[in-house]
Design a protein around this nucleic acid. Structure first.
Lengths: 225, 225, 225, 225
DNA sequence: CATGAATGAGGTTTCATTCAT
DNA sequence: TATGAATGAAACCTCATTCAT
């Protein structure tokens, strides 16, 4: 069956000089704006260039084709989100599960909402093998960091963290997406945080085994909520 | 910000005659196939018609434009899934939460996986306000049915079921999507079912209040998993 | 080293219906005209379509790309010329060399000059591997026919006809090309014919061995220099 | 009919300084290479500059536009070939026709094959009035030199040398071109030389009148067929 | 003088949609 | 009603050329 073949993709030149960096940044920003304003179907390279205040030619100096532009924008955003997640996870090694969950959810929601326009714009762009692969790759990185963190939980232990974090992140991702697509109002957001914490914590606890080594009361009973 | 203006949309004629139904069905099927084979960007009405074994002209007899075709395909699929969900919910009024969860997850996974090709194909098409609106609308129907069901749970009661089911379905949707995009292998699927049950049950229990009226053991302690 | 990669090439649909044939013919003719008027560098598909009185879209229904259009025009012309040559050769089996030469030169000059505009136009298009390959292929056919004919000459025999006819045709081709590019006036043309006959006949006789079976004076000794 | 208008053309500055000469030479060489690697359609000034190890700007210091670059490359090559021919002709005044032919063919083949890559590359560039005119002009010079030489032949005399040499050179040119395009193998080349000698000599003898003053056997009667 | 980022006109190609047959 | 040839607006992308640094 099909595989939606696509083309090269590597950005054409890495902008080293100051002017170039500015240009590329403007193009990125313009892409988001156009995406939000007219939608992905009617996003044209000309429109993006126009909005960025450069000529099409300039755009094509940095991106070999339209796909690569969209891909780069996506990559940048996902990398930002991923970085935030990884850091949050690293900061919480050794904590109790509840604390971990709190931090990770916090980081996730913050990262997504900081530029919620970008997140929203990109949902419409998640097309094609490359995009899926990228999302998956970046997802894996966060999940791995999270798994590493959870392995150090002081009050629980897990048997298949790779799969568990995959489920966890997919679920969180689905929820955030739905909320953003519904148009997130501020108080919706605070509700969102709470629910994501509940969702994540209860799921993790339900798949956890109590940590026996400490000879204390079962971690499970500790999570007596 | 923008609003991605789109065009008319209603299917052009209701296929009452037998032949029409066959034709429309062939067009639907062809759409899915083309979507999977060449991707949404390169899906053309001509290609779909060709694959369906009719001429473009004929296609345009049943759908006023390309968008309406895609919209109809999506609608049909989502309606199928929605129906399955609603029925599953109706069948489980008055049951215990655990039973409800089991049934709903079962119905959801079955519906999505029965034609997982369609689900996958459509993820690539979820574009534009209309599509989002449709998804939201169909989602609401299922969520409402689910909420109605949960309200009758014999062992728990919930305070904000509208919001709770929204979160629940978003989470399940996110997980299924991730699994399908990762390429669902059969044993991945059975794992999926179990995890979705865990995820859903633990979340619901964590937001439930025990049903006091029946004077029985607290529902919460019942969820002692 | 390089190979000037090119793309597909097969004409897109074979025009079976009357209308289509007319359209394709118009496009061919328009191509020649544009080629002659503005030269190959400034030949654009839009211009060709315009001149042919159809829309660009129509042009692209029959030719997948610009190259394929030019290629087809070339192919048609070369095939015509080739056919003429082959027929001339077949008509002269068993004749004396002088007669053969006369006929072949006649056919060659006639074919090239009948639509000298096309010949001229195409010289500017002989670019890329495919084009060279086509010329070579069509050339080989004529050369083979000529070789077959010469093998039956009543007054001479040849040892390496493949190579001999290759040289012969290359030489004739070079001369015709030069004359056309110089802008062939009518009396230039009649001179051309005579010189080509001289050139061809003297070359052939100089590489011929006398046909011994007839027991007459050796043709070779006649070519004493 | 059309006239393929083109632009200015004179190289922008005569490279007197040593560095300039080196640069220009590098650009010439790069042009050939690019021509051979990607073909004339995809030859870009940027690519040539890159390959030459200079910036586009620099290239434009020496050539006012792309055409002029190609023209210059062609001119240089044709001038080389032409010089070689003229010298060969001058060295053979007063010789017998057979000797003359031998020398001229030798010079021609050597000149073309010394840088057969250039010859091949340029076949793809022979486009536009200017180019044709240049070829014609350089051709005329060689032909004139050859005519002058033939006029001094010790064993034959010719009535219309201008036309005769035109035919002769066109024929030789056609043959060399065909051989180069077929991909000249070394032993093909040696065959080529012999055949060109045969072709040229027999043609010249067939159009020659015997030189009566020397009272020898008539060359014409030898061409008895 | 050299550089190479920026320009933007213009070329190629696609594809939703119509309409005469 | 079905067909599919024709349409042409509009998208993508290239590349000769300039000019500020």
């Amino acid at each position: 069956m099909g595989s939606h073949p696509q083309v090269s993709f590597e950005p054409r030149k890495t902008p080293v000089q100051a002017r170039s960096t500015v240009t590329v940044e403007a193009i990125f920003e313009a892409t988001i704006q156009v995406l939000l304003e007219v939608g992905p179907d009617r996003l044209t390279t000309t429109r993006v260039a126009e909005r960025a205040g450069v000529s099409v030619g300039t755009l094509y100096q940095y991106f070999p084709n339209k796909q690569s532009l969209l891909f780069s924008v996506m990559e940048q955003h996902l990398t930002h989100v991923g970085d935030a997640m990884v850091q949050a996870c690293q900061r919480n090694h050794g904590q109790r599960v509840a604390t971990m969950v709190e931090s990770v959810v916090q980081a996730f929601v913050d990262a997504k909402l900081k530029r919620s326009d970008i997140s929203t714009a990109l949902y419409a762009t998640t097309t094609g093998r490359k995009a899926t692969a990228l999302m998956s790759k970046v997802g894996k990185r966060s999940q791995a960091a999270c798994a590493a963190m959870l392995a150090t939980a002081s009050d629980a232990q897990f048997s298949d963290l790779t799969f568990t974090t995959f489920i966890l992140f997919s679920a969180m991702g689905g929820v955030i997406r739905a909320v953003l697509e519904a148009g997130a109002s501020p108080n919706m957001v605070s509700l969102l945080r709470k629910q994501l914490v509940l969702l994540s914590r209860s799921y993790l606890m339900s798949v956890a085994e109590p940590r026996r080594s400490r000879g204390l009361r079962s971690a499970r009973s500790a999570a007596s909520f």
